[in-house]
Design a protein around this nucleic acid. Sequence first.
DNA 1: CTGAAAGCGCTAACAG
DNA 2: CTGTTAGCGCTTTCAG
Lengths: 327, 327
Amino acid sequence: MATIQEVAKKAGVSVATVSRVLNNSHTVKETTRFKVEQAIGALNYAPSVLGRNLRNSESRLLLVLIPSISNPFYTEIINGIEDTAIHEGYNIMLCETDSNPQREAIYFNLVRNRMADGIILMDPTINRNNVLQLAETHPIVQCSEFDKEGHISYVSINNELAAYQAVKHLIKIGKRKIAFINSDEKFLYARERKAGYEKAFNEYDMSVEAKWMYNIQKLNFESGQQAMRTLLNQADRPDAVFAVSDVLAIGALKEIHASGLNVPNDIAVIGFDKISFSNMTYPTLTTVSQPMYRMGCISATMIIKKIRGEKVESMLLEHELIIREST
Amino acid sequence: MATIQEVAKKAGVSVATVSRVLNNSHTVKETTRFKVEQAIGALNYAPSVLGRNLRNSESRLLLVLIPSISNPFYTEIINGIEDTAIHEGYNIMLCETDSNPQREAIYFNLVRNRMADGIILMDPTINRNNVLQLAETHPIVQCSEFDKEGHISYVSINNELAAYQAVKHLIKIGKRKIAFINSDEKFLYARERKAGYEKAFNEYDMSVEAKWMYNIQKLNFESGQQAMRTLLNQADRPDAVFAVSDVLAIGALKEIHASGLNVPNDIAVIGFDKISFSNMTYPTLTTVSQPMYRMGCISATMIIKKIRGEKVESMLLEHELIIREST
DNA sequence: CTGAAAGCGCTAACAG
DNA sequence: CTGTTAGCGCTTTCAG
């Protein structure tokens, strides 16, 4: 591997000049630039970003922390982040926390160690204090999940309103016994969507029944199936289900089907996220769409601004109820 | 941000000693180590990986190049890569090529620029020559897709055999008019699975018909639907479909359903990959399982060995036919 | 327009 | 067991 020294020697100029060519400074004579470019080509030289990073004390790397890469909800966001990052000359380091505090601690150190210039965080439930403390000294933005009390910038949607509208839709099509498959309520979105669910109930003078609430542990298809199984085994069966994630709703759909009941006549189902699978189920799934890709773009833009020391504003984006066959 | 100098001064030792403590060298007196650790704590010091990287000329970053993050097949592999990488003290930079040569060029430079120590490549179809040339001087391994003629290490499965077994299974349950939804044949797996398909046909003296072959452009649900629509519109309708990806098979399933036909009686469907969603479709999808997670682990181990200068052997792992309701 | 030289933060010989 | 010192490869003043 050639170094800038060798290029300089070969071109018969100083390293400073080579550096200027590399960073296309406009103060280089055309003939000199040409000589340098010849030397670079001849030596097949590529500048070491290691030296540059140390000198500039930056890594041009964005740390993206997600709970799980298997959830299509996040992959769409990542697409947005990556496109924006590349465009701004950054690359992303994608890391899965699995909601594991130890892993998160390792990743947080990456920014303290200057391996990453900033963090886009999608799972701030672990070590709330660590996050707040890190945010004092390092650029962090939150995407989707965020800390309401903290002062860390975020981009998300109005979860309470979205859930309220979803449940209201179920009520309007004549359902009254609406079950709720929720995530662990350590997640903000879980608490907010629950609030939306309750708000709709209150509005129609319906009482929220504990027997129709189910909290899952792990966000995957099997949890949705398991939840639905429990719900179906009750004497007083629900006539609709609102799940906080399409992944759960799809599991529920499968289970209802397996038990010989009809969707939406016996039980209507509504999910959340509008992942691409949700249009491939039988029947197709009614859901709430979030602008995932845009959330990704915006969070990338925000973190880059923060890294540059600019001020940024938190944002709540629009969601949309997508009515399909399951309701 | 404190530097190693400040820690040394505060602890009343030299930077060398601080460095020794940092890298837990055993040649430091206990009392000295204690002093240093006190200073580190007091200054809230975290070593800059920038300086270390330059000094050691390594980045401890693995570049992972995938065609698309939206395909669950890859996300499982990534899980394996990440777990192994972390365990070995590496982090991963995940980048989506979208089979775009320009993007790939950018990413390849990341390793030439020493931003990454090695590459795990899952999409070697673009710029075959560039890949081979880069492999001359930099650590690369191929995962899933690989270049048969090249001499770059890889981990994959026996695609021809797997496809042969899948098609044979369809023949055994009485199907004869077996359609084939394939990817672009620039992909090795597409060519190999086609060979397996043809081999099964030959063995049963069935003739391979052009009208039952369909090549998709983009690997997503819609392509599967589109392919199936075309296949169904023919006078002589197939009685089975083999799709090279679960994503395509699921799209096909949906389309068959929409046209009022029954799976598997009218048309049997078989996919490939055993993504978790394949068990949530109606009916559940027969498929070929690949050890995705293990492929990820192995490719990470391989690339790290290569980075260390050790020799590595290419591997073909076992696959398995998973028979479910769709056949 | 170009060169000399300092220094980013760290590790590892080498000497003591 | 510890300190001194020389760089790793680059960018950026400051002079000229």
